[in-house]
Computed example of a mutant assay.
Amino acid sequence: MSESRADFHRQYQAQAIQEAERLLARRDALQGAWLDWVAGELYRLKPAPYAAMVRRELQRLSQA
């Protein structure tokens, strides 16, 4: 039985927020190299829907 998109979101939401916070925490230390680094980190995340969740959380936290 495949899980629904909503179930997937509920299951991984907290983890996606933690991952986005981890990525954002490195921004000051990496400065200009951060964008390339974070792009590589996001590329490695699997599955793709989870990576998209992390990307959205990263954007949301960056705007806060």
Rank of each mutant, 00 (worst) to 15 (best):
L23F: 15
R60E: 02
L61W: 08
R22W: 06
K46P: 01
A20Q: 05
E19L: 13
A16S: 13
Q63F: 05
L35K: 08
A33V: 08
R56S: 11
P49V: 03
H9Q: 04
L35C: 00
L42W: 06
E57V: 01
M1R: 07
R55K: 14
M53W: 02
R55F: 00
A33H: 14
A16D: 08
L42Y: 08
Q13I: 01
L24E: 10
K46C: 01
A14E: 15
A25M: 04
S4A: 03
E3R: 08
E19G: 00
M1Y: 09
W34T: 08
L23C: 08
V38F: 12
H9W: 08
Q31M: 14
S62Y: 03
L58W: 01
F8S: 00
R56H: 06
A29Y: 09
R10W: 08
L58H: 04
S62I: 01
R55L: 12
R55Y: 06
S2K: 08
R10T: 08
R26Y: 06
Y50S: 05
R5P: 07
P47H: 04
A39V: 10
L24Y: 07
R5V: 15
R60Q: 12
Y12N: 14
E3M: 14
D7E: 06
A16G: 07
A25K: 13
R22I: 03
Q11F: 05
G40Y: 13
E19N: 08
H9I: 09
H9R: 09
S4W: 00
A20T: 02
Q31Y: 09
Q11W: 03
R60D: 02
A16R: 10
L23D: 03
A39G: 04
E3S: 10
V54C: 02
Q59C: 01
I17A: 11
Q63L: 11
E41Y: 01
S62C: 04
H9E: 11
L24R: 05
R44C: 04
R10N: 09
E3T: 13
